Simulated scan of single mutants.
Amino acid sequence: MRNAVADAATPPRLAAVNGNGVAGAATAMFVVGTLAGVSGLIKDYPLYGGQLVRYLVASAILLAVTRALGLRFVRLTWREGLLLGGLALLGLALFNVCVVESARASGPALVGTVLGTVPLGLALLEGRPAPRLLAGAAVVVAGATLATGLGSGNLTGLLWALGAWIGEISFSMLAIPLLPKLGAIRVSAYSTALAVPMLAAIGLAQEGPGMFRVPTAAESLGFGYLAVVVTVVAFFLWYSSLPRLGPGRAGLFAGLIPVGAIVTGLVLGVATPSAYDLLGAALVIAGILVGLSASRARRPLGGGRGRRDA
């Protein structure tokens, strides 16, 4: 489904890459799942320092792309500035803090399971979701929960995981009003650039000056993949697809994150999927198909009053 708002501020050739949004959303979330495959390359680097490196490199690339495409700087209203600041703070900086701290407190399974419910949350927040969309989201949640190992943990880990859930929801919902005016590239560039000083402040508070050191060759490869593929490419694809699909339908593809992790582990030979993993992946795919079959009202996201600034 295409509409004028979906293409706002996005060059036609780049907009065409995502078609109706399905391919872009699926690729974005699958790619995010592959970060598990490179985690071994950066496991010895300070956690918060690593996030700072990732977003610093990604923002530099995105701002360079923005300039190369001739996308001029857009002055925001105070409300839009608050939305962008909230997106950077909640959807990027604090999201990463909550994921890190939840994994430290309870292991990665708990936060993975909580984040697996994001499709249902986005479907409910869309307004009046079709019953088939809710059913599909519920199946995706079940599949993602199986694929992440039925997480268990303590109260501290759960609270951090809930914070990560809020951040993941904010990553999409706070961007929707901005996309008609800014487009996918500028929303990605501005939000990642704003997240850099936030992550620097958090990292200094948590890890001190030790968060800064020159990465090894292997770590540089890992950070390069995280910055270019998992951040620049995935953010652009997600924000290009979100207005086309709406948060409910787009959210279904969040279930592909653990699927991406499973496939990456298998391809790299570092993990063999269990029967639960395969069943979870099958449920995710089935839920996506059910949810996408639901009808959606043809209404523009974000109010439909944004400018077309190519």
Rank of each mutant, 00 (worst) to 15 (best):
G208L: 06
G86C: 04
I169W: 00
L221Y: 09
A103G: 01
V139N: 05
R305K: 13
I61N: 09
A195F: 02
V214T: 12
L56P: 02
W160T: 06
S188H: 09
A250V: 11
G269D: 00
L56T: 15
G255I: 07
N20W: 14
T66S: 13
A281W: 01
N154C: 00
S241T: 05
V229W: 06
R296T: 12
G157P: 00
A58T: 01
A227I: 03
L122S: 00
L283T: 00
V270G: 08
T66G: 07
V270F: 10
N154F: 04
A16P: 11
A161W: 11
A184P: 12
A281S: 12
A281H: 03
L133S: 02
A36M: 13
V5S: 07
A23G: 10
R2F: 15
V99P: 03
A23L: 13
V232K: 08
G24Q: 01
A201Q: 05
A193E: 07
R75V: 04
G304N: 00
Y45V: 01
L292V: 05
P273S: 08
L226E: 11
E126R: 01
L278Q: 02
A88V: 00
L266P: 00
L125N: 07
P180A: 03
I166L: 11
N3M: 03
G208C: 03
L182M: 08
L283S: 02
N18Q: 15
L47C: 10
N96S: 13
Y55W: 07
T264C: 03
G302R: 04
A28D: 07
A93H: 10
V270W: 11
T66V: 14
G302E: 12
S102W: 04
L279Q: 14
A36E: 09
L41T: 06
I166K: 09
P108M: 12
L14W: 14
A271I: 08
V290M: 15
V290L: 14
G121W: 08
V259E: 02
R2Y: 10
L266C: 02
A161L: 11
G50F: 04
V263H: 14
A271K: 10
G143W: 01
S102Q: 05
L179R: 12
G37Q: 08
L245E: 05
I42Y: 10
L87A: 13
I257G: 05
